[in-house]
Design a protein around this nucleic acid. Sequence first.
DNA 1: AAGATCGTCAACCGCGGCTCC
DNA 2: AGGAGCCGCGGTTGACGATCT
Length: 362
Amino acid sequence: MRKGRAPCCDKDKVKRGPWSPAEDLRLITFIQKHGHSNWRALPKQAGLLRCGKSCRLRWINYLRPDVKRGNFTKEEEETIIRLHETLGNKWSKIASHLEGRTDNEIKNVWNTHLKKRLASKKGNIPQKDESKESSMTSSSSCSSITFVSSSSGKRNLEVELEQQWDERSMTKNPTEAFAIAVSDVAQGFKTELSNHSSSPSEEPKELSSCSISSNNTNSSQADVSNQDDQAGSLFNFKGFYDAKNTSEEVNKPDQISDTVFDIPLESDLDFWNMLDSLGSFQSDGIQSHEVEGTQSSNFGEEYSKEAENNNWLLYLENETKNENQKKLSKDAAEPLVPEMYDMVLEPEDEMGMGHYHIWSSS
DNA sequence: AAGATCGTCAACCGCGGCTCC
DNA sequence: AGGAGCCGCGGTTGACGATCT
């Protein structure tokens, strides 16, 4: 008989706390390539100093391509309340009824909003301010404005992405499925985006209010709200980083030169450590290249699926750099790497597995 | 302006249950 | 059959931003 349960990992040797973009990138890259058949072994194989549980949680709750972010709609909230009546705190079961929602997210929403709201209704206790309460419900949305506009505008794209992902994953390996799902939807997205590309400058960078309600299923309003947001909505990865950096200006890339770096996808610690330590990168991301793509008339088929898929990798790359830049800027007025690069990841081999090139624009 | 309090949510922890050997 | 290993779930914590006093 064992006394107690063996710890899942050596707590002293694993990193804990918030995930950095570099770690996210590493995890995504690994799962994209190898899937996640064994969470316990995954961190070691991926070169992550995390316990398998932590990786799994991060993936399921945050990094999965089909995870829906943003505020809960009224319908979703009602569904949660209804299901909670019958199922109780079976969050994963409730989550299975809400596409794209995680048990953790639902649990949080229940504990922070719904429980209180129900309690006050049942006890007939007048809420301090019903409108305030409901605005708070969407406040998670208001606090991350990007999500507000995204969530209304992104619905179709996300559903589509999910569908694509499901379809592909039925017939292909997860990696390929993911790559193709993302790129297929991205293609559709670009078409849609170009239809609204007339005067983006007139649109606010951020929504000044929460006027787009959480149950707004009409995408037209969001369609023109913010192209960056839409880009973010397509690539959830960008979306959630945007939520942290909504106020950051995004520089557009100049030209892409042909300086090439090899990025090993395997656990090349040197490379990943380099990522961790790089500083002074432009706050450029996917959207830059997407805009570039939409402006290009012959974009169409030329834009490879792999490259599409790499866009969100690119975004994470840049987020990694941005984060380091912030860290470094606290310590030194002069960045360590004064001229850094907008990086475009280009797959060296067929499915982009193996090595990537970083094309630097300097 | 500054400290206190509140709200949110990502992440951690420990346990139950399933699967494999 | 039962022990070991792993995954997934639900409860809880803690960091951080927002709001209040």
